[in-house]
Computed example of a mutant assay.
Amino acid sequence: MTTQAEKSQQALILFAHGARDPRWAEPLQRLQQIVSKQVSGDVLVHQAFLELMTPSLPELIAHLVQQQVAAVTVVPIFLGQGGHVRRDLPELITQLSADYPQVRFTLAPAIGEDEQVLKAIADVCIAQL
């Protein structure tokens, strides 16, 4: 019988910039709850931040490695592929891949690059008229 600790798990990380005001992260927390309800119980859904908030991505990955997570998908919750998503985040993933070669890392495009997301935002904007 396989125990939870022995079971290889997958993690989905909602990665955001971070802000000084903790209320800034409230929509991300709601998103985490929505996603958690829709994915398999074997998928751990977390949030991590580039700066100003915790946990940082390296802090979270260290924790997930202790939980025997074998695959991590990082979804940047950014509207576009700016400098943080084009440069900083890939460098961070490269370093984490070197630090934890037993973990398979996948970096998704910025969420705002997805056509469905853009359509949903457009619908909300139009609804304001």
Score class of each variant (00 low, 15 high):
1 M>R: 11
2 T>G: 07
2 T>Y: 14
3 T>K: 11
3 T>W: 11
4 Q>R: 15
4 Q>D: 13
5 A>V: 06
6 E>D: 15
6 E>A: 14
6 E>S: 15
7 K>N: 11
7 K>A: 13
8 S>Y: 04
8 S>C: 03
8 S>A: 15
9 Q>M: 14
10 Q>T: 15
10 Q>E: 14
12 L>S: 01
12 L>W: 02
13 I>C: 04
14 L>E: 10
14 L>A: 10
15 F>A: 01
16 A>T: 08
17 H>G: 11
18 G>M: 08
18 G>H: 09
18 G>K: 07
19 A>I: 04
20 R>S: 10
21 D>A: 04
21 D>W: 01
22 P>F: 04
23 R>I: 02
23 R>E: 14
24 W>G: 04
25 A>M: 03
26 E>F: 03
27 P>W: 02
27 P>H: 05
27 P>N: 08
30 R>H: 12
31 L>N: 08
32 Q>W: 09
33 Q>F: 07
35 V>R: 12
36 S>Y: 00
38 Q>G: 11
38 Q>L: 14
38 Q>N: 14
39 V>Y: 09
39 V>W: 10
40 S>D: 13
40 S>R: 00
41 G>D: 12
41 G>E: 12
41 G>M: 04
42 D>H: 13
43 V>Y: 06
43 V>K: 13
43 V>N: 04
45 V>G: 07
46 H>N: 13
46 H>A: 12
49 F>P: 03
50 L>G: 06
51 E>A: 12
51 E>R: 14
51 E>P: 00
55 P>L: 01
57 L>V: 05
59 E>P: 07
59 E>Y: 03
59 E>D: 13
60 L>A: 05
63 H>E: 15
64 L>V: 01
65 V>S: 14
66 Q>K: 14
66 Q>Y: 04
66 Q>I: 02
68 Q>L: 09
68 Q>M: 05
68 Q>P: 05
69 V>Q: 07
73 T>Y: 05
76 P>Q: 07
76 P>D: 07
77 I>C: 13
77 I>N: 01
78 F>A: 03
79 L>Q: 00
80 G>Y: 09
84 H>L: 07
85 V>T: 00
85 V>C: 09
86 R>V: 05
86 R>S: 11
88 D>W: 02
88 D>H: 00
90 P>I: 08
95 Q>I: 08
96 L>K: 01
97 S>K: 12
97 S>T: 12
100 Y>H: 15
101 P>A: 06
101 P>Y: 01
101 P>F: 04
103 V>I: 12
104 R>V: 15
104 R>H: 15
105 F>T: 00
105 F>C: 06
106 T>E: 14
106 T>W: 04
106 T>H: 14
107 L>C: 05
108 A>R: 10
109 P>R: 13
111 I>E: 03
112 G>I: 08
112 G>F: 02
113 E>H: 09
114 D>M: 01
114 D>N: 14
117 V>W: 09
117 V>Q: 02
118 L>D: 01
119 K>G: 00
119 K>D: 11
122 A>I: 09
122 A>Q: 11
123 D>Y: 07
125 C>V: 15
126 I>Q: 12
126 I>R: 11
128 Q>K: 15
129 L>T: 10
129 L>S: 07
